[in-house]
Amino acid sequence: MKVVEINDVFRTYHDTEVEVKAVNGVTLSFEKGDFAVIVGPSGSGKTTLLNLIGGLDQPTGGEIIVAGHRLSELRPSELIDFRMEHVGFVFQSYNLIPVLTAEENVGFILSLQKWPKEKRKARTQEMLSAVGLSDRHKSRPSQLSGGQQQRVAVARALAARPEFILADEPTANLDSKSAETLLDIMVKLNKDEKMTFIFSTHDIRVMKRARRVITLEDGRVVSDEKVNHR
């Protein structure tokens, strides 16, 4: 089942008099349960493509359909609701809310979605347990290591059961051990919950775990390979 369809998408920026084609005619699709990475050199359009898929940015050409929604047809306020309901984001710099505890951060989107308190609490505990941080539920981000913060970010992204997770360089700020732990967790969630993960990364450790590697150069897809891990 296709979760994301990208049809001949362009994203062009006009920087003074120079036209920059950050995404240049990309056509891709992602199936439910994909564990895909988008790789490529800096400036190849990885993050731009992720922003387009997540509805944070609008293409200047082409069409993106996510979970049945044509993103170009959604108004800005509908795009925000779309993101809340269908997309989970994991950012390079964790981006947790510093004044909230780990469990409050995880439960934040659930509260935006008006989940009942008990249900919210149960789901929060479930997700913190899934990322191995049950015992740190009362800790604030400043009391957690980088790896732990990123695990909380993953739990937050997954809590509301989105269609897929977009992770932009999620391991870039982590040490090897923390990165491996995080990837173990994401692989397990992908397997157990059939959660679709789409990464943009330079990290070889992420590429090694991916089942699909898409390479971008100058905003174009230059390769799209399936990888079998035995």
Partner: peptide
């Protein structure tokens, strides 16, 4: 700035 951008990204609407 970054935090507010993140909140908007994950679905906190303008009214909120």
């Amino acid at each position: 700035t970054r935090e507010l951008g993140m909140l908007s990204a994950i679905g906190m609407n303008r009214r909120r």
